[in-house]
Nucleic acid binder design. Structure first.
Length: 341
DNA sequence: AACGTTGACAACCGCAGAATT
DNA sequence: CAATTCTGCGGTTGTCAACGT
């Protein structure tokens, strides 16, 4: 049977044997892969080049980290996925030694179900209604899995920050206008500063009829300059509490007030309707600021462990959006920013 | 013990964009 | 500049082992 990708007739498929692995490793370590299409011939393999490449990248590379994902890695995946969606290759770049295939498999077999079991939409990471959850109900596995422990999903802004930098770079390198939706007409055009301590939401899986339980976040601290970010925009500003992203201090959780479904955070950039000469100057300032931010974030990436998780920089995000021509009426949510971009 | 189900992992497929001819 | 080839990516499927009935 022929093979679509290379047209070869005698191409082996399916699992790789140790002998094949050995041949491929030997060939690539001594001669490099060069053109993958020529690897099978030179390595003496009855495989197509594509298959060789996949085998090497996903399994044989010496720098690969084997074994199950750590909680930290899991957290990174969740955080970055919230921003980027199913961009597994991008997500995997945040996990040294992990492949996009690994991340994807881990997501589909574990994290996705965990999110659903916690009432979170794995696509948007928002809370989904009990009605939706009922229809999406995933039966609990009879087999205990190391990652099945029900712990709250949290968002860590160290990784988010890093991702936003990537987004920025890509946005700025794109010649076409990004499709970014930033405003939902159904929502009030302001993010209110959180006046009451946030709550974590848990659901008693032992009792499917139980209502969602709200628990005050023990790490909550009243809004301050650290937890509330003023987004300067032209001559006015709008406030946004980090809580809209589910982040509060080092212990972070997604939560929603009361039993209402969690709404995606809304970013509203005021004063965007009219642009005068002052705004042109302001934009220039913001571009400079953005460059500073990118540099700062680069530095942060050098040692992310030193960074406070609450240091996510919304002014950076805003300047990124501003510099790419995003207008307020297009602004819906961070999620939309991520999904649409 | 046999069978069905589930989860984890590996591999394949098709597409899109980049690179090359 | 068009055609072709190569590469990378995300979605999907296949395989295997563990577990429950």
């Amino acid at each position: 049977m022929g093979h679509r990708c290379c047209g070869k007739q005698k191409v082996k498929r399916g699992l790789w044997s140790p002998e094949e692995d050995e041949k491929l490793i030997k060939h690539i370590t001594t001669r490099g892969h060069g053109s993958w299409s020529s690897v099978p011939k030179h390595a003496g393999l009855q495989r197509c080049g594509k298959s060789c490449r996949l085998r090497w990248i996903n399994y044989l590379r010496p720098e690969l980290k084997r074994g199950s994902f750590t909680p930290e890695e899991e957290q990174i995946i969740i955080d970055v996925h919230r921003i980027l969606g199913n961009r597994w290759a991008q997500i995997a770049k945040h996990l040294p030694g992990r492949t996009d295939n690994e991340v994807k498999n881990f997501w589909n077999s574990c994290i996705k179900k965990k999110l659903i079991s916690q009432g979170l939409d794995p696509k948007t990471h928002n809370l989904i209604s009990s009605h939706q959850r009922a229809s999406n109900k995933i039966g609990g596995s009879s087999r205990s899995q190391p990652h099945d422990q029900q712990k709250p999903i949290s968002v860590n802004f160290t990784t988010v920050n890093s991702q936003m930098k990537n987004c920025s770079a890509e946005l700025n390198s794109s010649s076409s206008s990004p499709i970014v939706t930033l405003y939902n007409a159904q929502q009030p055009p302001m993010v209110e500063t959180m006046a009451t301590p946030p709550t974590h939401q848990y659901h008693d899986d032992q009792n499917p009829n139980a209502a969602w339980t709200s628990v005050k976040d023990p790490t909550f601290h009243e809004p301050s300059t650290e937890s509330t970010v003023n987004i300067s925009s032209s001559s006015s500003s709008s406030s946004m509490n980090l809580s809209v992203f589910g982040l509060l201090g080092n212990s972070t959780c997604l939560y929603a007030a009361g039993a209402q479904p969690f709404e995606a955070p809304r970013i509203i950039l005021e004063g965007e309707q009219s642009k005068g000469s002052e705004e042109v100057l302001q934009q220039e300032k913001e571009k400079l600021l953005e460059m500073e931010m990118i540099k700062a974030i680069d530095d942060q990436d050098m040692d992310a462990s030193l960074m406070e998780s609450s240091s996510f920089d919304f002014s950076f995000l805003e300047s990124t959006l501003m510099s790419t021509g995003v207008t307020s009426h297009d602004l819906n949510s961070m999620a939309d920013f991520a999904w649409n971009y």
